[in-house]
Design a protein around this nucleic acid. Structure first.
Lengths: 330, 330
DNA sequence: TTGAAAGCGCTACCAC
DNA sequence: GTGGTAGCGCTTTCAA
C-alpha cells in the first residue's frame, strides 16, 4: 500500500505538504503541487478512507433509503442520486426498508454514524421520528414533507389536478381514482388536488392498492359498474393491469374508458406511447435530493428548505371524449 | 460521543479490556465482561467504524453492482443480499453500472479500497478484468461464470430447456425465443439449452431486445408470420408487451399462441397467475452471493467455487396444445 | 485475565 | 509556503 509518506519521500517534501497538495491545493505553491501530484500519480497513491474519516469525521458515504425496489419508479431516482453522489466524490449506500417504519428506524440507527448524510425516499416513519433524526444528521426526505426536515417533492398532486382538468375538459363527469399503497404520503394529497381541480366532477376513490398488475386488473368491473368514464391510476403497474383486463374484455381505450396514469411508465421499460400520463422527473429528483443532503453536510446549517419539482402532463391517445356525454345541468 | 475509554472509566477497567469484552469476549472473565457490557449499554456506546477500520483493515462494507434497477428482476436479489449482509453486520453499497463495462471497471476501482468484498450481478466486464479484480479483492459474480472467479448461477438455461420440453410435449414444433439484451451472458446459454432439449423443434431466435414492453409488443407479427405456435420470452417485461399486443389483435392464449417466460413476474408486482414461467429464486440468489463473498472475506481463500441454483417450472394456462398440429413425419 | 503502550494513515495546528 | 508533531478511536502486541 502506498501511503502519504511514500509520496512525500518520492517528491522530496513532507507528508503534510502532500496532504495539502491533495486536499487543499490553494495552500501550496504551484511548483511543489505539480511535483507532488506527479509523484502520487506515479506511485498510484489512493487515500485511505478510514484514516481520513477518523481525523476529519467525514466518511464520504451517503445513505439513500427507499421503501422498495420492486417498483421501478425508484430506479431512475437512485440512478440520479448515484450520479450526483459520484460527482461529489461520495458513495451511496442504498437501503430498502420494505415500507416498514420499524425497519426504517433501525436503518437510521445503524447507519447514523457510518454516513455523512441521509436521503429517504417516501419514508414511512412518524414525523416526530424523522424530525428528531434530522437534528442529529443531515437528512432530506423525498416525496414527503415533514416539519423541520428538508425535502424534495415531485409535484404529482398538481399533475393529478391537471389530469382531472384535462379529463373534465373532454367531458368526463365521473372519474375513478385508483389509490396507491397504504402509507403513501402523496396519495391523499393527489386525491385532494384532483377534487379541488374538478369540483363539478364526481370522483370515485378506490384503494388503497399495492402498486401491482393484478390489483389494477381487478378494478375494471368496479369502475365500469360505477359508471366512471375515466380512470386515473396511482402508478403504471396498476394501470397496466387495468388496461390488460380491459382489452381482454374486448373493450377499448379511450372509447369505453379513458385511462391516465400519475407516473411515467418509461422508467421500467414499460413505455407505452399511447397512454396519457404524468412525466415525472425522477432522475432529477434523486439528483436534487442528494445535492441537497450534500449542501447540508457542507454548511452544517439546518435550513428547512423545501423544493417542489414540477411534473409534465403528457396528453396522449388513451384519453378522449366519453362515449355518451352525461346530461349537463342547465 | 462515547468512546472506549469512557466505558472503561465507567466500568473501572482499562480500554483494552473493554475492547476485548466487545470484540473477543472469550478472552475475558465472565464477571468483568458483564460489567463492561452493562456500562457500554448504559452509556450507549457505539463502535467508531472508521477507527476500527483503520486498525483492522476491515470496513464492514460490501459492494453489490447491478446492470440496472429498471428491471425489477434485481429487486429481490438486492433485498436478499441486504438481508444477508445485515445479518453479518455488514452494510451494502449498491451500485448501478448501466450495463456499461467502463462504468463497471471504474466502479471496481473506486470501491476497491472502500469495501471488504464485491458482488457483481450480471457483470459486463471482460473476463480477464474480472479475474484480475478477483485477485485483489473477494469477488463473487452472479449469473456469470468466469474462470478464476467464484460465482452463483441461477440455472435458467436448464429451466428454458424444460420449458422447451414442456412445449414440445404439447405438440409445438416451431418455437420463437425472444432474446434478452446485448451482453447478457445467460442469454446464449438459454438458447443453446433450448435447442439441445428439443432437437426436433425449429427454434426461431429473435433479438437481442432490451427487456422492454414495446420490444415485446413489436414481435407479435413476426412470430405469427413465421408460423410459430409458441414463444419463450427472455423476461417478463417483453412477455407483457407481447401479451398485450396479442390481446389487442383479438387473439388469445394459448389458442393462438402459447406463451412462456424465463423469469418470474411476481417480483415487480406484475404477477399474472396464468402465465407459464420459470420461478427464479432471486432473493435466495442475492443472499447466497453475499454469503459467498463473506466466506471469502473470512477465509481469505480464493476457492473458485461455483454454485448453481435450480429454477422451478410453473406450468400454467398460457401454454397449451397448438391449434393445428403440424404434420408429424412418419 | 488484565493493563500499558504503540501505532494504523491521515489532517491540522503551530512554528518557522 | 512548508515541515514537525500531536492525536483522531481503536486493536493488539507485550508484560505483568
Amino acid at each position: 500500500m502506498v501511503r502519504l509518506k511514500d509520496v512525500a519521500q518520492a517528491a522530496g517534501v513532507s507528508a503534510s505538504t502532500v496532504s495539502r497538495a491533495l486536499s487543499n491545493p490553494e495552500l501550496i505553491s504551484e511548483a511543489t503541487r505539480a511535483r507532488v501530484l506527479a509523484a502520487a500519480d506515479r506511485l498510484g497513491y489512493r487515500h485511505h478512507p478510514a484514516a481520513r474519516a477518523l481525523v476529519t469525521g467525514r466518511t464520504g458515504l451517503l445513505a439513500f433509503s427507499v421503501p422498495t425496489l420492486a417498483n421501478p419508479f425508484f430506479a431512475p431516482i437512485i440512478a440520479g442520486a448515484q450520479e450526483a453522489a459520484e460527482e461529489a466524490g461520495y458513495e451511496l449506500i442504498v437501503a430498502v426498508t420494505d415500507s416498514s417504519p420499524e425497519r426504517e428506524t433501525a436503518l437510521f440507527d445503524r447507519l447514523a454514524d457510518r454516513v455523512d448524510g441521509f436521503a429517504a425516499a417516501g419514508p414511512r416513519s412518524p414525523a416526530s421520528q424523522l424530525a428528531r433524526f434530522a437534528r442529529s444528521l443531515p437528512l432530506v426526505t423525498l416525496n414527503r414533507r415533514v416539519r423541520g426536515v428538508d425535502s424534495v417533492i415531485i409535484d404529482t398532486p398538481d399533475g393529478v389536478g391537471r389530469l382531472g382538468t384535462h379529463l373534465a375538459g373532454l367531458g368526463h363527469r365521473k372519474i375513478a381514482y385508483l389509490g396507491g399503497p397504504t402509507g403513501s404520503w402523496l396519495d391523499p394529497r393527489r386525491l385532494r388536488r384532483l377534487r379541488e381541480a374538478v369540483p363539478d366532477c364526481a370522483i370515485l376513490p378506490l384503494g388503497p392498492f399495492p402498486p401491482e398488475f393484478e390489483a389494477g386488473a381487478r378494478t375494471v368491473e368496479t369502475v365500469l359498474d360505477a359508471g366512471c368514464t375515466a380512470v386515473i391510476a396511482y402508478n403504471s403497474t396498476l394501470l397496466l393491469g387495468l388496461l390488460h383486463r380491459l382489452t381482454m374484455l374486448g373493450l377499448s381505450t379511450p372509447e369505453d374508458l379513458s385511462l391516465a396514469c400519475a407516473d411515467d411508465l418509461s422508467a421500467a421499460g414499460l413505455a407505452m406511447p399511447d397512454v396519457t400520463a404524468l412525466h415525472v422527473p425522477a432522475a432529477e429528483a434523486g439528483r436534487r435530493t442528494v445535492e441537497h443532503v450534500l449542501s447540508l453536510v457542507a454548511s452544517e446549517s439546518r435550513s428547512a428548505a423545501h423544493q417542489l419539482l414540477p411534473v409534465e402532463l403528457l396528453t396522449r391517445a388513451s384519453t378522449g371524449r366519453p362515449r355518451e356525454l352525461p346530461m349537463s345541468g342547465g
